Computed example of a mutant assay.
Amino acid sequence: MLFTHDTEVSLQSAVELVNSAGEPDTLTEVADLDDFYERYEFTGRHERTRAELDEVRALRARLRRLLTSSRDDAVEQVNAMLAEAGALPQLVRHDRFDWHLHAVDPDSPLAVRISVETAMAMVDVVRADEMSRLSVCDQEDCDGLVLDLSRNRSRRYCSTGCTNRAAVAAYRERQRRAEA
């Protein structure tokens, strides 16, 4: 494991949230947000309203800027996000999770908690000088984000779909060259 469990999960959820803004948008209904909330085992307040969904959807552009920024720019953004939320990191233990960091009250709005958890995860990324673990998909017609947690830093595509399209294109190119 490259980062602590809570850092990796926060990064994964942030990347999925940003990528949900693609075509098609995969975060359009409250039920989609419910699934996201459950999949990443968020805790705390979850209103299950259209207003909450809209707040979380509005966060996607800001998280994209953060996750694709340079290291120094990331520091400025992280500091701003933590200051805006009045973050006060504290060690907590709940449910099946051992000690980990929370930096805002569990009753804070979900969008605030997602923002702060992403900022806290980026603290670890910046401190470890691992910004290269975040990139944009190598598929020509895709701008999805990629979180590469592999040991050999080999992940280049945001999804299985993009990986498969790249493999098919490479195969067809090899076939074309073999025939020529």
Results as ranks from 00 to 15, higher is better:
residue 59 L to Q: 09
residue 45 R to L: 06
residue 138 D to I: 01
residue 133 R to E: 03
residue 106 P to S: 03
residue 165 R to V: 05
residue 33 L to N: 06
residue 33 L to G: 03
residue 89 P to L: 08
residue 166 A to Q: 06
residue 86 G to W: 01
residue 4 T to N: 09
residue 109 P to E: 07
residue 78 V to G: 01
residue 101 L to K: 00
residue 70 S to G: 09
residue 165 R to W: 04
residue 15 V to T: 10
residue 71 R to L: 01
residue 55 E to I: 01
residue 12 Q to C: 01
residue 18 V to T: 07
residue 102 H to L: 10
residue 168 V to W: 01
residue 45 R to E: 12
residue 51 A to K: 07
residue 18 V to N: 11
residue 143 D to G: 11
residue 170 A to W: 05
residue 138 D to H: 14
residue 134 L to T: 02
residue 87 A to Q: 03
residue 91 L to A: 13
residue 12 Q to R: 15
residue 180 A to S: 07
residue 98 D to N: 02
residue 87 A to C: 06
residue 53 L to I: 04
residue 148 D to Q: 06
residue 155 R to K: 15
residue 127 R to C: 12
residue 88 L to H: 05
residue 177 R to Q: 09
residue 55 E to D: 15
residue 137 C to H: 04
residue 131 M to Q: 13
residue 95 D to A: 15
residue 20 S to M: 05
residue 164 N to M: 15
residue 154 S to A: 12
residue 119 A to S: 04
residue 158 C to G: 06
residue 107 D to Q: 14
residue 4 T to W: 00
residue 84 E to F: 07
residue 91 L to G: 09
residue 165 R to Y: 02
residue 69 S to Y: 13
residue 37 Y to Q: 11
residue 140 E to T: 09
residue 155 R to E: 10
residue 149 L to E: 08
residue 118 T to M: 02
residue 52 E to C: 01
residue 178 A to S: 05
residue 39 R to F: 10
residue 131 M to C: 00
residue 62 R to G: 14
residue 28 T to D: 05
residue 71 R to F: 08
residue 107 D to Y: 07
residue 123 V to S: 03
residue 144 G to W: 13
residue 90 Q to S: 10
residue 173 E to H: 12
residue 40 Y to C: 00
residue 173 E to I: 08
residue 69 S to F: 10
residue 70 S to V: 00
residue 60 R to Y: 01
residue 98 D to C: 11
residue 44 G to V: 01
residue 176 R to Y: 04
residue 84 E to R: 13
residue 3 F to G: 04
residue 9 V to G: 02
residue 87 A to T: 04
residue 142 C to D: 11
residue 47 E to Q: 12
residue 74 A to Y: 07
residue 112 V to P: 00
residue 177 R to D: 05
residue 13 S to N: 13
residue 56 V to T: 13
residue 77 Q to M: 14
residue 174 R to H: 01
residue 166 A to I: 04
residue 37 Y to F: 12
residue 20 S to K: 14
residue 101 L to F: 05
residue 79 N to P: 05
residue 40 Y to V: 00
residue 100 H to C: 09
residue 116 V to M: 00
residue 134 L to R: 08
residue 9 V to Y: 04
residue 5 H to F: 10
residue 112 V to A: 04
residue 12 Q to M: 07
residue 28 T to L: 15
residue 130 E to N: 06
residue 150 S to L: 01
residue 154 S to D: 11
residue 27 L to R: 13
residue 25 D to K: 14
residue 59 L to W: 04
residue 106 P to C: 01
residue 86 G to N: 02
residue 88 L to M: 11
residue 86 G to P: 02
residue 110 L to R: 12
residue 33 L to Q: 07
residue 28 T to V: 15
residue 124 D to W: 05
residue 4 T to S: 13
residue 166 A to E: 05
residue 26 T to D: 02
residue 96 R to T: 12
residue 139 Q to T: 09
residue 42 F to Q: 09
residue 56 V to W: 04
residue 55 E to R: 15
residue 113 R to H: 03
residue 8 E to C: 12
residue 61 A to K: 13
residue 93 R to D: 06
residue 58 A to T: 07
residue 89 P to T: 03
residue 29 E to K: 15
residue 38 E to C: 03
residue 112 V to I: 12
residue 75 V to S: 06
residue 164 N to Q: 14
residue 54 D to L: 07
residue 128 A to M: 08
residue 66 L to F: 14
residue 139 Q to H: 14
